[in-house]
Design a protein around this nucleic acid. Structure first.
Lengths: 113, 113
DNA sequence: TACGTATTTAGCAATATGGCTAAATGTAGA
DNA sequence: TCTACATTTAGCCATATTGCTAAATACGTA
């Protein structure tokens, strides 16, 4: 039950759902998410910590940067189902689609992904 | 997004998940859930309202009683998937299993289900 | 070592949540 | 109508959540 509640709580805030949606596009560093969403860095950091605690994301430190990726390959209970629901939820969210466009533009501009 | 968040919020509290789990056994009136869970009636009532607002339950008024049932036949987005997750979540929750036993005993004692 | 950049941790304020009791509402029956 | 019972609504309180800024931490480089 506790694991399930951690997941539903992780998904019970639109900002977090949108962050997770961006990670559907592949691994991102915190700074990318900050740039796209325009939330303060500590805010994003805390959301990502909660997602990681719930088993939804993995962090990879590389020098000063931390890269986060979705736990798409996780075999933990519920995770695959929730990621499938995530895809459906973001695809119809206008705010998310704008953020994703912004991310694509950023990727193109920086040319480093 | 809003509908999705309403669902994840509905599932983000263990008391509500357990109430929804009891409704997997079939339609129940508020007083049954109160008796089994030992929460105050207004507390249960409010949880059920939230579930109904999220499209997870339906209310049927019959005289003084209100019977709630899970929206197992709903074709609304996400609902079937969430009910499937609900089943998994409650099956391994000790507290829920105790409540369900209590419900079964109650049904047998009252002999009216 | 010292500095710059990225991230996390700590702590604050506004709001949301989940429990309760008391009061209001709705229905059935004397 | 009055009473009894089931439920909902309103309002209170303690705690959790989510945004922020400031401070602390971690890493690479001059």
């Amino acid at each position: 039950m506790h694991d399930f509640i951690k997941l539903t709580k992780a998904f019970s805030d639109p900002t977090r759902v949108r962050i997770l949606g961006l990670l559907l596009e592949g691994e991102l560093c915190v700074c990318n998410i900050v740039e796209v969403t325009e939330f303060a860095q500590p805010t994003i950091s805390r959301h990502l910590k909660q997602c990681t605690d719930a088993g939804l994301t993995f962090a990879r430190k590389a020098g000063g940067w931390t890269h986060y990726r979705l736990a798409t390959d996780s075999t933990e209970k519920y995770i695959a189902e929730f990621i499938s629901l995530l895809k459906q939820a973001v695809e119809t969210d206008k705010t998310f689609l704008e953020l994703r466009s912004k991310l694509h533009a950023l990727k193109k501009a920086k040319n480093i992904f």
